[in-house]
Write a protein that binds this DNA or RNA. Structure first.
Lengths: 222, 222
DNA sequence: CTGTCAATATTGTTCAACGATTATTATTTC
DNA sequence: GAAATAATAATCGTTGAACAATATTGACAG
């Protein structure tokens, strides 16, 4: 079922497969990806694999060192800070300028509901995914496919960082009700208030993530 | 001098060469790029060229149709509208939240000066480039490398659209003094005013570009 | 004129090869 | 024994050719 999907080209499918392994944490940051070994494992040629590598390198998930190979990108504090800056720029503005009856608001509401029910059964993985959907919907308020595509990349990169952290509960649970509050404000037409709430929210989230990140013992080890 | 630069990999250099041809207008939108022909022209293998194609496709400059080949992306009104949406989201926010003494402000000022002097000698190409530098500097106010990289892509895509339009004077000249006004407001610490001025500016620019675009006779022709 | 079908051309993918660069090991020298 | 150096192995970078899959073209029959 998974390897007979000839609908699209091989390289993008490879990229997606590797991307999933990355955000699932199966491939750890700093690990080196051998072309010959991976191409043998995935039953594809070296050339096709290299094409997939280019894609992921441009997305920031892999790092390419000339004549040495590709490595899983190692998230740093700088990258986390950078990503949150991007999020504040895009998400806050998207909310501030949002049209209150935009279809994406419905998706935001649905994401909050799913997060709540998942939280009730302590399914923090689903809570995290729902949270991702929520913020992707926020970006969609701006009605720009380029912004959406860009955000998807950023989000994947952020997930890579999250993979290094444990305690997903602490990382996602506190924000469910904050998300709900933002939807409420949007429904009430209070876009400006929603934007400032989101900004404070993102700043707090950034602090939490950075704090968790700083508690990682040693990340310079292979 | 240009073909012995072994410092970086081949594919990115190819991509840059093709990108330059694209924004210079040497390759017209809708044109199909044959793998065998181009690889022969550029003296590289088909595999290397394909790697470069992936890069440019992900940047939105080329379009890939399965089993048919790659084509120069055809700018549409929708893409122009989308790009301007992105610009308003990013640039306005960057200005509104800017630190008035940010180093990028100096580059903005320098870009205005260059545009003025180029305008005096009717060098509209340079005026356009200086304008690009100005806006890239605006984005840099947000201090995010990811935002900078993203904006570079968007700008390249916009340049592709500009290539279809004539009368570069009308497209760039009116904005020189508006740029200068934004720098002044930033210097005065009036970030909010600068942001609203920039927003009006971008809206006007979008209208101008769309109007010029709609005057293109027939863009469905090969 | 239209639909069918073969012929042709182009892309998609793989493989094998070779030079260049890097990592590793062995050797030499002090 | 330790450091420096040379030889070896492994990997990447790029190329060229090959074959299958798909799309385009053109001929042809009705």
């Amino acid at each position: 079922m998974t390897d007979q999907d000839m609908t699209s080209a091989l390289a993008p499918r490879l990229a997606e497969a590797i991307r999933n392994k990355l955000i699932a944490g199966e491939l750890k940051p700093g690990h080196r990806l051998s072309e010959v070994k991976l191409s043998a494992d995935l039953q594809v040629s070296r050339n096709s694999l290299r094409e997939a590598f280019r894609l992921l390198t441009k997305e920031g998930l892999l790092r390419h060192e000339p004549n040495r190979g590709v490595f899983v990108a190692i998230p740093s504090m700088a990258s986390i800070i950078d990503i949150y800056r991007v999020r504040r720029v895009i998400e806050c503005r998207a909310v501030a300028q949002a049209y209150p009856k935009h279809p994406a608001v419905g998706r935001m509401r649905a994401a909050v509901e799913e997060a709540r029910s998942a939280s009730a059964r302590s399914d923090w993985g689903t809570v995290g995914s729902a949270n991702m959907v929520f913020h992707a919907a926020i970006v969609d308020l701006a009605d720009s496919e380029r912004l959406n595509a860009f955000y998807l990349q950023i989000a994947a990169e952020l997930r890579l960082s999250f993979g290094l952290l444990d305690s997903p509960e602490l990382l996602h649970a506190p924000y469910i009700e904050l998300n709900a509050a933002i939807v409420e404000k949007l429904d009430a037409g209070e876009m400006q208030e929603a934007a400032v709430a989101l900004e404070a929210y993102l700043l707090q989230s950034e602090r939490t993530v950075l704090a968790a990140f700083s508690r990682i013992p040693d990340k310079g080890k292979a």
